[in-house]
Simulated assay, not measured.
Amino acid sequence: MNLYLIRHGIAEERQPDTQDEERSLTKEGKQKTQKVAQRIKQLGLQFDVIVTSPLVRAYQTSEILVATGLSTQLEKSPHLAPNGNISSWLNYWLEPKNYPQKAQIALVGHEPDLSNWAENLLWGETKDSLVLKKAGMIGIKLPEIGSPLGRSHMFWLTPPKYLL
């Protein structure tokens, strides 16, 4: 299974009168995310499913990915909200009955969670070494058997500027 960890695009600044989960993508954030999505499509990537954080900015990012034709399936997961737990996500999503081993799954979420998840999959612990830029992507291949924690391989780490 290949996981593509994608950070949401540029969002509105935090405001005292706006809930964090309601912050939308900015005009620039939408434009850059659309360009990144088009480039990903040109590179031949296709996702079996895009799983997104329920927060507005992540969901809007996912909608752009779907509109670009990168997937026809979009699902929300509370595990991808800020401070989500990778173990909870793994227990559900990595069950063979839920998704086949050959699946291409995009997870759209937030920092530092996505980088921390990547580090746990790669090294079995968080080292605060990876940083995922807004609209950036990390690709990770999970092993076919056994726990993926500390046993996965990164094959993609791209900030959006290399896709624009």
Rank of each mutant, 00 (worst) to 15 (best):
A37H: 02
R7C: 07
V66T: 04
L65F: 10
L142D: 00
D113V: 03
A118R: 02
L45S: 06
S71W: 05
G84E: 05
K27H: 13
T126W: 00
W117E: 07
T26M: 07
G136T: 11
Q60H: 08
W123G: 00
N85I: 12
I6W: 07
E144V: 05
Y99F: 13
Q31L: 06
T158W: 08
Y4V: 01
L94P: 00
P54G: 08
Q15L: 15
F47M: 11
D20I: 14
W93F: 01
S71R: 04
S62R: 03
N98D: 09
H153W: 05
D17T: 13
P100G: 10
S77H: 09
E22Y: 11
N2C: 07
L157C: 09
S87W: 15
P159M: 04
S77N: 14
K35R: 12
Q60E: 15
S53P: 09
L114D: 05
W93T: 00
K133I: 11
H153L: 08
G29I: 04
H110Q: 02
P78T: 13
I64L: 04
E75V: 15
K41R: 14
T26F: 08
L55N: 09
E21P: 06
A135Y: 10
V66P: 02
G109K: 07
L55I: 06
I64E: 03
K141Y: 02
V108S: 07
R14P: 05
A118S: 11
K97F: 07
E75M: 12
L149E: 10
K27G: 13
Q104M: 12
T68P: 00
K133T: 15
I10W: 07
W123T: 01
L3Q: 03
V56S: 14
P148I: 05
T68R: 04
K127R: 15
N83R: 15
M154Y: 02
L3I: 05
W93I: 01
K102S: 14
I86Q: 05
V36L: 02
E12I: 03
L55C: 08
N85Y: 10
H153E: 11
K102Q: 14
Q101P: 11
K102F: 09
G146R: 04
T18I: 15
F47G: 07
V49S: 14
Q15N: 08
L164I: 12
M154P: 00
L80S: 02
L122N: 00
L65N: 01
P16S: 09
V49N: 10
D20Q: 14
Y162P: 02
P143I: 01
I10Q: 12
A103F: 08
S88N: 14
E12Y: 05
E95R: 06
T33A: 00
I86H: 03
L122T: 00
S53G: 13
E75W: 15
T52M: 06
